[in-house]
Simulated assay, not measured.
Amino acid sequence: MGFLDLAGRVALVTGATSGIGAATAELLAERGAHVLVAGRDTTRGGTVVAGIREHGGKADFLAAALADAESARQLTQEATELGGGHVDILVNSAGIFPFGPTAQASPAEVDAVYDLNVKTPFHLVARLAPAMAGRGSGAIVNVSTMVAEYGVAGMALYGSSKAALNLLTKAWADEFGPQGVRVNAVEPGPTRTGGTAAMGEGLDALAAQAPAGRPAAAREIAEAIAYLAGDTASYVQGAILPVDGGRTAV
């Protein structure tokens, strides 16, 4: 176990059954948080929870489709109950990232991307942030992407959804920051996960454009998320932190 700066806190991590979300759940648990692993896949969720518990951490799984406002409401209710009446940290990691020409995106695909990448974080924050504000403390970290910062052919749908999340991050920082709730975001670059495996050599080619010259490991993104969730980032509010190997700096 690492330093337990998050001991006594309850952290809800969406999209936590794989990739960046799973790595974040594991790291927050290492730092003492009771982590609520939220996701669609019960088997993968159980595996993440079991791994955390085997290493001495505290975690529980919450099945969540997050397809609409009602599913978000149900998740926040279950998380609050399981957390003993409070959720102190929210990590909005759930997301989908279909790539392709704009003309080939179906209306259903457009709706699915915005429902999960934009509306779900909105509904979760709307339900959890006021309670955090009432307690005078809390941390929310949104997982965005480097392609929210610049245009890339074939990534208009995904990039625009995360650009909306970036603006929400700043607006929520202004809305809830005065009551002690810090809201920030990370912008990952190309990251090796199960979800990006299908990109094959394309992932390496994308990563080669950055000074780091390689894809990130999910744990590297999780470290940035954990920083923003913890007290060492106590004076960081409304920040959009690039964790992209330097791609948006050049």
Rank of each mutant, 00 (worst) to 15 (best):
G195N: 05
L203K: 13
L228G: 08
M199Q: 06
I221Q: 12
R214P: 00
A163C: 11
R219P: 00
A173R: 01
L203Q: 13
G180C: 07
I240C: 00
G230H: 03
L206R: 11
A233T: 06
G195I: 15
P178Q: 07
A205G: 04
A197W: 03
G189L: 09
L228P: 09
A164G: 12
V236W: 01
F176W: 14
L241H: 03
D204Y: 01
T191Y: 04
T191S: 04
E220V: 06
I240S: 05
R214W: 00
V236N: 01
D231W: 04
G195K: 07
E187K: 14
V181R: 03
T169Y: 06
P178N: 04
P188L: 13
A208C: 07
K170Q: 15
E187Q: 15
T232W: 02
A212K: 02
L165H: 11
R182I: 07
F176G: 02
G213F: 04
A226R: 03
Y227W: 13
A185T: 10
P188N: 12
L228C: 08
G238L: 09
R214V: 00
D174K: 14
A229N: 06
G195F: 13
T232E: 14
G202T: 09
A217I: 01
R219N: 01
I240H: 02
M199I: 11
Q179I: 00
G189T: 10
A212P: 00
A239C: 06
